[in-house]
């Protein structure tokens, strides 16, 4: 468990903060979690998190990994990243309020500030979603 406040690792804030903690991190990726609380911005009227919320959670999970590397390299604040591309996203089920998402980020190639990654999100033992993504992190 990494004891840093997640807000030191990602630039998003409420109501768009969709990651609670970076659980572990390495050069090849990391793991995060998010408990879906009452009032989460992406809950539908039946208390399920919409696909957009899951995607934002995966993107911010990758952002937290990148933020941790940036802070370790001396950055004063976490980099602001943008989703450039989503490919092969599959949503197997919509998680409900009260569930905790666990997401594994696997980093791939990086070129010109664009990082390719894979994200897989589970709740309990069940696969929620998996995707490939390109995140654009402008370098200063």
């Amino acid at each position: 468990m990494i004891h840093e406040d997640i807000r030191t690792l990602v630039p998003q804030r409420a109501p768009m903060l969709m990651v609670d903690a970076l659980l572990d991190v390495g050069l090849e990726g990391g793991r995060t979690c998010l408990t879906i609380r009452h009032g989460n911005y992406f809950l539908d009227e039946d208390g399920r998190m919409e696909e957009a919320g899951i995607l934002e959670h995966i993107a911010q999970s990758a952002s937290a990994v990148a933020g941790r590397h940036a802070v370790a390299a001396g950055a004063a604040s976490p980099p602001v990243g943008y989703i450039g591309e989503i490919r092969k996203f599959k949503c197997h089920r919509l998680p409900r309020e009260g569930e905790t998402l666990h997401t594994t980020i696997t980093l791939g190639a990086e070129a010109g500030g664009v990082t390719l990654l894979r994200g897989e999100t589970r709740a309990g033992n069940a696969l929620v979603a998996d995707t490939q993504m390109k995140i654009y992190l402008p370098t200063e």
Binding site: R13, P15, M16, L17, F42, E50, E51, A59
Partner: peptide, 24 residues
């Protein structure tokens, strides 16, 4: 819209995922 309070503070940018939700 309240999303811009957090995406990002003092730098309102449309979240790409909100465009996906709009298409849905």
């Amino acid at each position: 819209c309240e999303v811009y309070r957090g995406h990002f503070p003092d730098n309102p940018v449309c979240p790409g995922v909100c465009h996906i939700q709009t298409v849905k």
